[in-house]
Amino acid sequence: MNPQDAHSVSVAGVIIDDQGRALLTQRRDNGHWEAPGGVLERAEDITTGLLREVEEETGLQVEPVALTGVYKNMNRGIVALVFRCKAVGGELTETDETRAFRWVTADEVRALASEAFAVRVLDAMSNDHVPAVRQHDGERLISA
């Protein structure tokens, strides 16, 4: 296989509170608002990676509730698995990767996040029980 054809797999957890709001984190490196998550380590299973990434970026322990979408960044070859989660412990804590947090409504998600990242959160906030499958260029969705 050509190394340029390789993909990486990331996970993200959209934490939903009792009021139906989602937690967004503001990244330190670029200031973008996103759901917490990151790249799976090679020997790491999906759930373990999800729990690790969310806790590293937020200080919260979560329980995955449902897979809500699969997203591919066509320019970078990153496949993201996004899960709706509920917090079960811990405390919000700023980290080396995260400088701020916000509990947001769907309208606030649209105002804060780029389309490619907002849609992940919006899909997780919806009551649809079928995971979305979407592709994007890093900023905007791309039609299939």
Score class of each variant (00 low, 15 high):
G13Q: 03
V133F: 12
T95P: 13
V39L: 02
G20F: 13
T25Q: 14
E34R: 10
V104W: 09
P131R: 04
A35C: 08
E34G: 02
E97G: 09
F117D: 10
L50Q: 02
P131D: 03
F117T: 00
M74T: 07
V14Y: 03
E91K: 13
G38M: 13
A100I: 02
G49M: 08
T48F: 09
T68M: 04
N127V: 06
M1K: 11
R27Y: 01
V62P: 00
W33I: 04
V104M: 09
T105V: 04
F117A: 11
I78W: 03
L141H: 09
I46H: 06
L122N: 05
Q4N: 12
K72L: 10
T105K: 08
P36Y: 01
H32F: 05
G13H: 02
S114Q: 02
R84D: 02
A132C: 08
I142W: 02
M1D: 15
H129W: 07
T105D: 06
D29V: 14
S8N: 13
R99G: 06
N30A: 07
V109N: 15
K86Q: 10
L112M: 05
C85G: 00
G89V: 04
V39I: 11
M1H: 15
H129R: 14
L51D: 01
F83L: 01
F83D: 00
R52E: 02
L112Y: 00
R76I: 08
V79L: 11
G138P: 11
S8H: 09
S8A: 15
T93F: 10
H129G: 00
E91P: 12
G89H: 03
R110E: 15
T93H: 14
D45V: 05
T48H: 09
Q26V: 02
A111S: 06
N2Y: 09
G13K: 04
A118R: 07
V119M: 13
S143E: 15
D18W: 05
N2L: 12
G13D: 00
E55N: 13
L60Q: 06
A12F: 06
R120L: 08
N30T: 08
L141K: 11
I15K: 02
R140V: 03
E94T: 15
G69V: 06
E56P: 12
P131Y: 08
H129N: 10
P64N: 06
L92H: 14
V79F: 11
E41D: 15
D96Y: 12
R27W: 07
F117W: 08
T95S: 15
C85L: 07
V88I: 11
A144T: 06
P64I: 04
R52F: 03
H7G: 01
A113H: 01
L141C: 08
R28E: 14
Y71I: 06
T25Y: 05
A118F: 08
V9K: 12
E55P: 05
T48I: 04
Y71W: 04
R21H: 13
R99H: 11
H32S: 06
L50A: 01
G90Y: 00
G138H: 04
D137C: 11
D96N: 13
A87M: 12
V130E: 09
S126Y: 05
N30W: 05
A124D: 07
E56C: 07
